[in-house]
Amino acid sequence: MRFGATRAVKSLSLDVRQGEFFSILGPSGCGKTTLLRLISGFQQPTAGQVLINGTDMAGVPSNMRATAMIFQSLALFPFMRVWENIAFGLEARGVGTAERRREAERLLELIALPGYGNRMPGELSGGQRQRVAIARALAIQPQVLLLDEPLSALDLKLRQHMRAELRDLQKRTGVTFIYITHDQSEALAMSDRVAVMNAGQLQQVGSPQELYSHPATSFVAQFVGENNALMGTVTEVSGGTAVLEGPQGRFAGRAGPGLKPGAKARLYVRPEALSPSREIGENRLKLAIERFDFEGAFATAYAVLQGTGSPQRMSLTISQQGLSDAPAIGAPFTAGFSAEDAIVLSDD
């Protein structure tokens, strides 16, 4: 079943399916918050439509839509108790006190904060406030929950914990989540599908795996995960494979959408697809390692491309086991990668 379609910001169209965790990912100022405000009804589109359950929402105010918003600041009411906060939507609908209390208690159970009803929001921790904000939005039984970077105020550890919790809450309640974030790891970790936006334009919609492995545009390739880029001109495209020639050499990779010979393009290869010491695949790079960043289970090696005029840096992921065999700092070595693991995308 189709939840809705929006056309907003710079003419874009996207469908969010009922019951999915959908993220809108993009750098700040890309128009993602505007998009959310259009869906919520805080702003009206100048052109185009927002459909929820197939119904056009034009002229329908935010409180009459089947959406509820979680604000970046959470916007808990500081002068009301936690249970009053949660039951505020019910209060506005004229529900009696006893039933409001009961419903608030039920939701407090759901967010694993039973017995916290009589506290004030100021007495809660960041993560608890977060959950109360979600309970407050769920109280009005929305079909769609709109979340505007709600984790950005939390510290890293808590943020990672809350990701799992949000995801779990979404699966348990079955409510459609539309989640706005500029943090790509957040979007990849939580979402069923992600829409990547840049400068008011929709770049790509897909599952986290699709975005990571099959970026449709250079922007997505650079924004989602780490990537190494090699510049050049496309010399041939055949059978889904493209050949790129540039100052760094001649490389083959999967051809991105709409790629034509003669176009200026970039080849993207993930750090984990670059294999040091062993010559895997059809592409070769002469590198010398500058430094290692140890990150526990793996290390990132930053290397300089040899034999070219401009110094270009590449990063390689080296597993813990591979570290003992890794080339020494400064020693030139040849790294290989297969065309299957690289993608050639035209310059936007």
């Binding site: 805080f42 509820a68 918003m69 604000f71 600041s73 009411f77 009005i140």
Partner: peptide
């Protein structure tokens, strides 16, 4: 915080409330 007013409105509160 402007979001407080938006949140209250989003939850269905009247101007008076």
């Amino acid at each position: 915080d402007r979001a407080q007013i938006d949140a209250a409105r989003d939850l269905g509160a009247s101007a008076w409330r």
